[in-house]
């Protein structure tokens, strides 16, 4: 039995007008890659932000590596937001330096190597990159972080299929038995093979949660197809 990395119990969260999460419970084990899927507004980002310690006004329980206050676990967590956090004039090399300062154990050499493999000019300003290239740059920055729990919000958005193939390989290289990857994503078809488990959110509730191959066996279809049927 693997170590439990992330646990949420009866987790709920409202933003004034409506409920973003309604009684969500699950436990995630170290050494797994888990996809969090669901339509826009289904609560994926809210869930990741709670786990990242960025939202503290939730009800229910959330813990990371056994620690209940998720804002205390930030050093063990790599949160990858779906929105840009940098100043447009910042250069790729500045961003790497910033991560190296902010994140103890940041793997500068690995980040540099990935930037060079994907053909980035380290002097390029982040604000001048295309949407896809920017998403890829942010992904590479996150892959340099040395953490136990990776919470990635839509890392494949706007990225072409060939680059996604390479990102899959980069992620698998990072994965080890101590780490957990929880990845919110819409891009299923070509990324399905990357995940051990799928959790589908629908209007803030869990609509489906299962091991990938068990779901394929049980429903006789791809996960992408299953998600279409369930929503």
């Amino acid at each position: 039995m693997s170590e439990c990395c992330v646990s949420v119990k009866d987790l709920s969260m409202s933003y004034g007008r409506g409920d973003a999460l309604k009684g969500v419970s699950f436990q995630l084990e170290a050494g797994t890659l888990v996809a969090l899927t669901g339509a826009n507004g289904s609560g994926k980002s809210t869930l990741l932000k709670i786990l990242a310690g960025l939202i503290q006004t939730y009800r229910g329980e959330a813990s990371i590596l056994g620690q209940r206050d998720t804002w205390l676990t930030k050093s063990e967590v790599c949160f990858h937001p779906s929105y840009p956090w940098f100043k447009p004039g910042q250069r790729v090399s500045d961003a790497v330096k910033m991560y190296a300062v902010l994140r103890p154990g940041y793997r500068v050499a690995e980040a540099d190597e990935l930037f060079s493999r994907f053909g980035f000019d380290m002097g390029a300003q982040l604000g001048t990159l295309s949407k896809g290239r920017l998403a890829l740059a942010l992904f590479i920055l996150s892959m340099g972080v040395n953490a136990r729990v990776y919470l990635l919000d839509e890392p494949f958005g706007g990225i072409d299929i060939k680059t996604r193939d390479e990102m899959r390989e980069v992620l698998l290289r990072q994965a080890d038995e101590r780490r957990l990857f929880l990845i919110a994503t819409h891009e299923l078809s070509d990324m399905e093979r990357l995940f051990d488990r799928f959790i589908l959110l629908d209007h803030g509730r869990i609509a489906l949660d299962g091991q990938s191959d068990d779901l394929r066996e049980q429903y006789g279809c791809s996960i992408a197809e299953l998600m279409r049927r369930k929503l």
Partner: peptide
């Protein structure tokens, strides 16, 4: 093997 098949080690 996970890298060769591009699937998770658990698979």
């Amino acid at each position: 093997m996970a890298m060769i098949y591009e699937v998770t080690p658990n698979t």
